[in-house]
Nucleic acid binder design. Structure first.
Lengths: 200, 200
DNA sequence: CCCACGTGAGACATCAATGTCTCATTGCAG
DNA sequence: CTGCAATGAGACATTGATGTCTCACGTGGG
């Protein structure tokens, strides 16, 4: 029996469809299921065999986004070294998921319902813990709450993805823009704090 | 003839409807036209007499948002004094429009079409000019482009409106959160730069 | 009083997206 | 070769939002 091949094929196809959908919906959130299917190179019927409907597709994208974020958090080793460096690693690791996050960010369907994926709360908590650690160690200012810093980080990542997508900023500047604005702000400082970077 | 009364009544009603719609759509972007009408205290028929359809309504909201932003920019006197203070004034003036901006920000219908309101470009240009002025005067760092700083400011305002709406941050902290993160970043600095504020 | 006007309520048609079905085709394994 | 499984194409019904219409009501001015 070919069950092994069957499952494997479905899995890889499902993932491919999901990523195509993410790429399309990122810059056209109202795309038709037919357009989503075409973008993935399959028919609407097959798309419907993978995902019961638009709702299910969006939920799957949400799960994928959460999964990628958690992988990024793991890879960034948020507990190691200076908190500021951890933030830089985090932004770097989060970059591949930025487009998907930008889409999910605008899909407020996900948050207005009664039950929302608890994965977001887990992510929020882990990132908030990083900012809290930085505050306790004296690296970060204490007048901005970890909750706000976390939300602002997501907001800046979404903005960064959008501005890169629109072509106004080069993709290679993504990390630097976000991490350095997040950490150092727009003001120029005398302390040799952030001037070192790989810009341009 | 009662034309004066007629026009006046229509104008005030239209504005009231627009603001009710903005408030509702801000936290439920997919609200039905019927819900929008109820929120404004009128019937769907009357709503349709004011705005030809959802498209027209969103366009009107866009125009309102741009109008309020331009008024905020005027009131903030971006050309006066230190650029950092101008940014603080700008955030303060922009706060009343934050919810509406947050809605428009996620309504990517407005930007994917071929023709988009040139008001956004004007606003972008004026705010970019402020950041450019700050860079030329030595106040702002030059490794972050004015275009990115402008986009980031809008992103932070949208994030701030969202986080206030969700109740995780008090409305009174809105200015401080956004302006100080935008200017100073998360890092704690020795230079007596931003510690003075009206926090808590 | 009487009329004009704005309004609310609702009926009705329309339209786009979607859910569901069938059927022919393709490709692959036995 | 033969049959199974997945697919693509398309027909069809459904659903929800929307556009459009009519009609009765009430209110304010002449």
């Amino acid at each position: 029996m070919s069950h092994v091949g069957y499952y494997c094929l479905m899995a890889v196809d499902r993932d491919h469809v999901l990523r195509s959908a993410a790429a399309l919906l990122t810059h056209k959130a109202t795309a038709t299921l037919d357009e989503v299917a075409r973008a993935a190179g399959i028919s609407r019927a097959t798309l419907h065999r993978h995902f019961a409907g638009r709702e299910a597709l969006v939920r799957a994208l949400e799960a994928l986004g959460i999964e990628e974020c958690e992988a990024a958090l793991d890879a960034a080793r948020l507990e190691d070294g200076p908190a500021a460096d951890a933030v830089r690693r985090l932004v770097r690791e989060l970059e591949p998921a930025a487009g998907l996050l930008s889409f999910l960010y605008t899909e407020n369907q996900l948050f207005e319902g009664e039950e929302q994926n608890e994965g977001w709360a887990r992510l929020d908590e882990r990132i908030s813990a990083l900012f809290r650690r930085g505050q306790l160690s004296g690296e970060f200012r204490i007048d901005l709450t970890p909750a706000w810093l976390t939300e602002a980080l997501f907001g800046l990542i979404a903005s960064g993805a959008y501005v890169v997508l629109s072509g106004r900023v080069a993709p290679k500047d993504f990390h630097h823009m976000i991490a350095e604005l997040m950490l150092g702000g727009a003001l120029r400082t005398e302390s040799a704090e952030e001037p070192r970077n790989e810009e341009s």
